[in-house]
């Protein structure tokens, strides 16, 4: 235990994961200071489709706008949508999972049936179906992406709740006369926290990928605000005369996804007591 803080830092997945996700959060938070002005405003007349140079590190797009500035502003959209959608998934999934795991048998059956039902949709088809029925907007994207991802969380939480409810301290709480709700809130939920945090972190990358694909299709975020997916879509028509338009936003997405996957992986080996033992000497 004494070496705990040091070993956190030595973890081969956690360290790069933390560094990347903190770096991205920093960029997102300071984008308006680093790159003041509207990233969607027209750039200088003479600097259209300019390749990377010392004045525009990552080049400019068709309207003379600085790609780096747009990337930095775009990180805000991606991260905010990513985290909000994951929050929706996690809250929904935890609720369903807790009800199924702690509630009566019949409710458990019904909820798991619903979970299987939504899991049977290939995720992208479910997302596309929902988007087709409703009109695209940032709020809708958050809801749709969040709603299409609660099922695995529900399963995970249910399994964990089922095993927790057989434990002595939960039985003791029930025996002492606490109601089901009180037991769930005070004894089960806090013990679920590590599982939920890991699940949430692991989902962020996937959601950001899905958002960028939707925006790429023109069914997600509409420009403005800047989104990495939209930037790639705009670069698609200029692959040959402006490869930097599509190349850099894609690298930004990949970096974000790698960062969050590593962070989730590292957190899992740290927080999950069952996996923790093998990880500590690994």
């Amino acid at each position: 235990m004494t070496h705990r803080s040091a070993s956190w830092w030595r973890d081969s997945a956690l360290r790069p994961g933390l560094v990347i996700s903190l770096f991205l959060a920093l960029i997102a938070a300071t984008a308006p200071l680093l790159f003041p002005g509207d990233p969607s405003a027209l750039g200088e007349e003479g600097a259209r489709l300019a390749p990377p140079s010392s004045s525009h590190w990552l080049g400019t797009d068709l309207l003379g706008r600085d790609v780096l500035a747009r990337l930095a502003h775009g990180s805000r959209v991606s991260l905010v949508i990513g985290w909000l959608a994951v929050t929706v998934s996690v809250v929904l999934g935890t609720g369903v999972g807790l009800l199924a795991g702690l509630g009566p048998r019949r409710l458990d059956r019904a909820l798991m049936l619903a979970t299987d039902l939504f899991l049977a949709f290939p995720r992208i088809f479910l997302i596309l179906l929902l988007v087709s029925v409703l009109r695209p907007s940032v709020g809708l994207i958050v809801v749709v992406l969040g709603f299409s991802g609660w099922m695995p969380v529900a399963r995970l939480v249910r399994a964990e709740a089922l095993s927790l409810r057989e434990r002595d301290f939960v039985a003791a709480a029930r025996g002492l006369g606490l109601t089901g709700l009180q037991t769930a809130r005070r004894h089960v939920l806090p013990n679920l926290l590590p599982t939920v945090v890991v699940a949430a972190t692991m989902r962020v990358g996937g959601v950001i990928l899905a958002e960028s694909f939707l925006s790429f299709l023109g069914l997600g975020v509409q420009d403005p605000p800047v989104s990495w997916g939209v930037m790639i879509q705009q670069g698609r028509d200029h692959l040959l005369d402006g490869w930097w338009l599509a190349a850099f936003p894609g690298l930004a997405i990949a970096l974000t996804v790698v960062g969050y996957n590593l962070l989730g992986d590292g957190l899992r080996t740290r927080l999950d007591p069952r996996r923790g033992r093998e990880a500590r000497h690994g």
């Binding site: 990358g205 990928l209 960028s212 694909f213 790429f216 790639i232 670069g235 698609r236 692959l239 040959l240 490869w243 599509a246 190349a247 936003p249 894609g250 997405i253 990949a254 996804v257 790698v258 996957n261």
Partner: peptide
Amino acid sequence: GLTLYSLPGFWFGLMLILVVSR
């Protein structure tokens, strides 16, 4: 493997088109 797994598929496709085809 993990790097390839994290790439956005549509972007990876575009980059392959750019390099291998164009």
